[in-house]
């Protein structure tokens, strides 16, 4: 309950901040629309040449893109801003202020800052879903939507855990202010169905940086083609990722020494 209150007040502060920067609002909206358009350009080019790529039709690939857009909103609206503030804390040695607060440090840094404008992405994702299903000539089954909801949770947990791991790296390296850039770059590959990748790349994107769990599986769930065993494995994988992230985070905190002190 106390943590819910905390979350509420952190959200409110972010909302207030967001209101100040109206230019950001316009730019955010504009960037988002353009990002989506550019993300779809390669898709167009690919499917202009072929009806299916690695077993995916254009409409189906759009569903993956929709999940990508949704998760990108989560990443940039709720995850990256806090990441930036942690890296800044570590650089300036002000993380001490966070650590002495009587609340879980991981919770505090994870909820430090939100960009409410990024909620635009959720709307954009819905538009893409609608477009994809129109091309496929059907609507998603109710059961599939329920399964997709579960995979959404899995996807967000995995994304979040990866982020905590990335932030932990900032404790060990002298100065990494482009961590979020790095994170985004890797994440960008998630806009493609996992089956377009072969061999080592596919292995990495399934088990090491599990992009498959984030966009391909939810898309399959929504399309009704996700095997039950895969779903269970994904849930287990998310739980594992979360645990590992938590352990690594705690170890990093233990090792942390403030800069210049």
């Amino acid at each position: 309950m106390r943590y819910l209150n905390l979350l509420g007040s952190q959200l409110r502060a972010s909302l207030l901040l967001a209101m100040q920067y109206r230019a950001d609002f316009l730019l955010d909206g504009l960037v988002e629309v353009l990002w989506m358009a550019t993300a779809i350009v390669p898709l167009f080019v690919v499917f202009q040449a072929r009806p299916t790529v690695a077993g995916w039709r254009f409409g189906e690939a759009l569903i993956v893109m929709g999940w990508f857009t949704f998760l990108q909103g989560v990443l940039e609206g709720a995850i990256n801003p806090s990441l930036a503030s942690v890296v800044e804390h570590i650089r300036k040695g002000t993380l001490d202020f966070v650590l002495i607060k009587p609340a879980d440090a991981q919770f505090l840094v994870s909820t430090a800052r939100f960009l409410p404008w990024r909620a635009i992405n959720v709307g954009t994702a819905m538009v893409i879903f609608a477009w994809g299903f129109r091309l496929l000539g059907r609507a998603p089954a109710r059961r599939d939507v329920a399964v997709a909801a579960v995979t959404t949770v899995v996807a967000v947990v995995v994304l979040y855990s990866l982020w905590i791991l990335t932030v932990s790296a900032a404790f060990y390296v002298v100065r990494i202010d482009n961590l979020s850039f790095f994170f985004n770059a890797i994440f960008d590959a998630a806009r493609w169905p996992i089956s377009v990748f072969r061999g080592a790349v596919r292995f990495v994107f399934t088990f090491v940086v599990p992009l498959a769990l984030m966009t391909t599986y939810p898309a399959q769930a929504l399309l009704g083609t996700l095997p039950a065993t895969t779903l269970l494995a994904a849930i287990a994988g998310a739980a594992l990722a979360f645990t590992v992230a938590r352990v690594v985070w705690n170890a990093s905190i233990a090792r942390y020494t403030s800069a210049g002190g």
């Binding site: 409110r12 909302l15 207030l16 209101m19 100040q20 109206r22 609002f25």
Partner: peptide
């Protein structure tokens, strides 16, 4: 001028 409060902040957007 940045007035305090959520409502005022919202107004200041416009």
């Amino acid at each position: 001028e940045r007035p305090p409060g959520l409502a005022a902040a919202l107004r200041s957007v416009f």
